[in-house]
């Protein structure tokens, strides 16, 4: 088969592009540590989320030197807690579940975004590096008050951070 030089160039360039895409994604997951939300968490009975040892008293909890876990319960049409405060330069894991219908936990303008499915626990780990304020919205239509379902995530400088009940 006689393939023209320019055509060979274009075929080669296409291959380079595909390999480049794969390398970028590999670098993203290995180098940058970007991960997907998976189903590694256990299930939960949505009928009595309140009896669950962690979701019965949702909120911010310190689990390591700079590691925090935030349990959040989503219901029509609010998050509990609605306002979350975490310190900067920390690793924050959100554990999310729903008591009624499918909601979502979408930190606006960021890549932190997951569905919250009743009976399931969604786990999202992020690095909170810089202080800042983020809106949290539900991006899964969950009923008539869907548009009012919102929360707030505030990343405060480390020296200003206080865990609830530590005052």
């Amino acid at each position: 088969m006689n393939i023209h030089t320019y055509e060979k160039f274009w075929l080669g360039a296409s291959m380079v592009l595909i390999v480049g895409f794969i390398l970028t994604i590999t670098y993203g997951s290995v180098g940058l540590g970007i991960a997907m939300v998976d189903d590694s968490e256990p299930t939960i009975n949505p009928e009595n989320v309140g009896d669950h040892p962690d979701f019965g008293d949702p909120g911010v909890e310190q689990v390591g030197e700079n590691e925090y876990v935030v349990h959040v319960v989503a219901v029509q049409f609010a998050y509990f807690p609605g306002e979350i405060e975490v310190p900067a330069d920390s690793t924050v894991t959100f554990k999310l579940t729903s008591e009624d219908v499918i909601h979502s936990f979408s930190v606006v303008g960021t890549n932190a975004n997951t569905m919250i499915i009743p009976g399931e626990i969604a786990s999202v780990t992020v690095e909170a590096d810089e202080p800042g304020e983020y809106g949290i919205v539900c991006s899964e239509y969950c009923g008539s008050g869907h548009h009012d379902m919102e929360g707030k995530l505030t990343v405060v400088p480390q020296d200003e951070f206080e865990l609830e009940g530590d005052e």
Binding site: M36, S40, G109, T110, N111, A112, T125, V126, A128, Y134
Partner: peptide, 12 residues
Amino acid sequence: AGGDLTVVGVVV
């Protein structure tokens, strides 16, 4: 990748 916060974790 610039859109912090980004979901991170260990790829199993």
